[in-house]
Computed example of a mutant assay.
Amino acid sequence: MARTSESRLWTRKVEVDKERGLSISLIEDPTLDLGGDDAWCAWCLWPAAKALMNYLATMDDQVLKGSSILELGSGCGAVGMYAALRGAKPAILTDVYRALPLLKRNVAADGLGGLCRILALPWGTRLDHLAPEIRSCVPFDLVLAADCSYDFVNPETPSPSIDALLATAKSLGRRALICVSRRPHEVEAFTCSVERAGLSQMATVVYNEEMNAEKEGVPECLVYSFNFAESFQSRAGEC
């Protein structure tokens, strides 16, 4: 007989931008069993998401207001919801199919259903296989991702998930902000993936935040900015 675990949802208030007085209600589920390795991490707010929101908070309102935003690996949806609160339009939050129910609950709990669209987007999916709501917005002004580089063996071994993340970000957005936590070898693995993808000249570390390692489990998070605008101009010239 299959054993089932009782879900223990809890809701907490998270201050995401003190200066602007912005907070979100966040539903987390520490017993979430999504039945697959590709969605186990969607249940809580991870440190890189906090760091990425802190970096976005340094941006002027006009940078995000009216900009089209795509979040990859949204998990609980904190980063995408924050972008929506700052005026991003549309703000499309995506993850694998099994992670969407909790993501939808979070968006509904914050009353952001009218501002955020929730769609499935497994990294590496061909553009013509994506939802029309995503295809119609390409290229997005900004692609966001946080704590999405955990699935690697070592820096020298190619990581299919990081490769797919980078390829998806490049194919869908003019610019991408990807926040990486400094767990053992994780930043090094991400950097190697960037180099293998030939994206080193497009990538810059624009922000780093020291974390409480005892509380957060990581000592630091880094935000990489990727400028893909020229690649879209090249594609337009070829058409």
Rank of each mutant, 00 (worst) to 15 (best):
R182E: 15
V143F: 06
P155I: 03
C179F: 09
D151L: 08
T157C: 07
S159Y: 10
P160G: 05
P160A: 02
S159L: 09
F152D: 03
E156N: 11
D128I: 03
T168W: 06
E186N: 15
I162R: 10
V143L: 13
V187F: 14
L165G: 09
A189C: 11
V180H: 11
A164S: 15
E133Y: 04
P155D: 06
F190H: 09
S136W: 08
E156A: 14
R175V: 13
T168R: 02
S136I: 11
P139F: 05
D163K: 10
L144Y: 10
P184H: 09
F152W: 08
D151G: 00
P184E: 10
A167N: 09
L130P: 05
S159C: 12
T157I: 08
N154H: 08
T191H: 14
S136P: 00
D163M: 07
R175A: 13
V180K: 09
A167C: 08
A146D: 03
I178A: 07
D147H: 02
E186G: 01
S171Y: 03
L142E: 02
S181C: 12
R135G: 00
R182H: 14
N154M: 07
D151W: 01
T157R: 11
A145H: 05
S136E: 14
V180S: 10
P155G: 07
R182I: 02
H185M: 14
R135E: 03
D163N: 09
I178D: 07
L144V: 09
L177R: 04
D128R: 06
P158L: 05
A169C: 10
S171W: 02
L165A: 08
S171D: 14
V187N: 08
L142M: 11
F190A: 09
S171C: 14
T168H: 04
T191C: 15
P139A: 06
D151R: 09
Y150P: 00
P132V: 08
I134K: 00
P158H: 05
C179Q: 05
S159F: 08
F190E: 09
T168L: 05
S159K: 11
D163F: 10
P184R: 10
S149P: 00
A176R: 01
D163W: 03
S161Q: 14
Y150L: 07
S136A: 15
A169H: 05
L144C: 08
S136K: 13
F152A: 02
D163P: 00
L177W: 12
C137I: 01
F140C: 00
D141L: 01
F190I: 07
F152S: 04
H185I: 07
D147R: 01
L127V: 12
R175H: 14
S159Q: 09
P139Q: 03
L127Y: 01
S181T: 14
I134T: 00
P184D: 06
E156D: 14
L142T: 05
A169K: 06
A169Y: 07
P158G: 07
T191S: 14
L172V: 15
S149D: 12
R182F: 10
T191L: 15
S159I: 08
D163I: 02
R174G: 08
D147W: 01
